[in-house]
Amino acid sequence: MDTVIDEKSAKKIEAVLEKFLDESGATYALLTDLGGNLLFKSGEEDIDGDTLAVLSAANYAATKEIATLINKENFSLLFHRGDNENIHFAKIAQDVLMIILFKPYLSLGLLRLKISDIQEELSDLLGP
């Protein structure tokens, strides 16, 4: 089943992501489907979004397989800490992942709270 994103929804989703970056202080946000297709990206960082989307979807899928293997439905937190940048992965709709880059001085808890604030809105805009 192919996905068609209409112009109105695309504008709204981009606005939600920009607002999220403003309010959370995160550096970069990206939405990808679980097949690794880049849907949206926002932020100043000069990053190859296509490859980041593919690797993130693969990372998420592999982690989910590990969870299944040890009889867990999924892990509730998927996050990597770096010296200069952290990355957080969250499933925000049935087939959509949100990947966020943020500096180590930002609180992970606060970031997760901000994600849960926009999750429903994004999920509605992205459709089933």
Partner: peptide
């Protein structure tokens, strides 16, 4: 599953 974005005017397919 192709992605068609009508705002960015892009069609993306996976091979």
């Amino acid at each position: 599953m192709a992605i068609v974005n009508l705002k960015e005017k892009t069609i993306q397919v996976k091979i």
